[in-house]
């Protein structure tokens, strides 16, 4: 099982290092051929305007969408979350519209408003997540099929999941937080070898691998 980290720009090395520390084979993805045999994808933080251009320029959009539609797990942080959103407030065209959410870029202001905070993320257990927000986006609208994994004190969602797609407005990879990547690796392993553990519990990616068409509905 191998996870691809989109390495066009941004903090991709942090994700590669973190996955490798978890014992997961992780490879940088710059061209479509790099997605060969990849069972999960990370879209890192960086500048979403830059990354969107590079994704289009090097033909990564369709292969990434195909992979996600087949059920491979995708995890986006910060700019990665923007790229995964179906709607970007203020008009930018969506890039990989896999999450039925509306996201607002630079929602907290400029760099001086970047912050750190401990967040409750119940699906990851009792221990709070130390979240680093850097010129971060925030989610303004959540579709009916989207689970909110974490909210700010004011109620705005900052971590979401829709089936095999997870996104955070903050950077677990900058704070030594491994649980999101662990979850991604577990989902990627289930996608890579659907038989294993299938009887123990129904994993969301299992449904997706069973029916690519259903998983894709409503996404494109």
């Amino acid at each position: 099982m191998k996870i691809g980290v989109v390495a066009l720009q941004g903090a991709f090395i942090e994700h590669l290092d973190l996955l490798r520390r978890l014992g997961v084979e992780a490879v940088p993805v710059r061209l479509p051929a790099d997605l060969q045999d990849v069972s999960g994808v990370v879209l890192p933080g960086g500048e979403s305007t830059t990354m969107r251009k590079l994704i289009h320029r090097w033909g990564l959009r369709d292969p990434l969408l195909d992979l996600a539609t087949q059920g491979a797990p995708v995890f986006g942080t910060c700019a990665g979350m923007i790229l995964l959103s179906r709607e970007i407030v203020d008009g930018d065209e969506p890039v990989l519209p896999l999450l039925d959410v509306a996201v607002k870029r630079n929602a907290f202001g400029r760099q001086l408003d970047s912050f750190e905070e401990d967040l409750e993320v119940p699906v990851l257990g009792d221990q709070p997540v130390h979240a680093v927000f850097i010129r971060a986006p925030v989610i303004e609208r959540v579709g009916p099929e989207v689970d909110v994994l974490a909210r700010l004190d004011d109620g705005r969602p900052v971590a979401v999941r829709q089936r095999n797609v997870i996104a955070t407005a903050f950077h677990p990879e900058l704070a030594g937080e491994t649980r999101f990547h662990h979850l991604l690796a577990t989902m990627a392993a289930a996608f890579a070898e659907p038989g294993e553990g299938a009887g123990r519990r129904r994993h969301p990616t299992r449904r997706a691998t069973g029916g690519a068409e259903t998983a894709g509905t409503g996404e494109r």
């Binding site: 390495a7 720009q9 941004g10 760099q111 750190e116």
Partner: peptide
Amino acid sequence: TWATKKGLAQMLKGG
């Protein structure tokens, strides 16, 4: 914080 100051530069990498 130091993490947010240094972190913005991390987001600019490869650019």
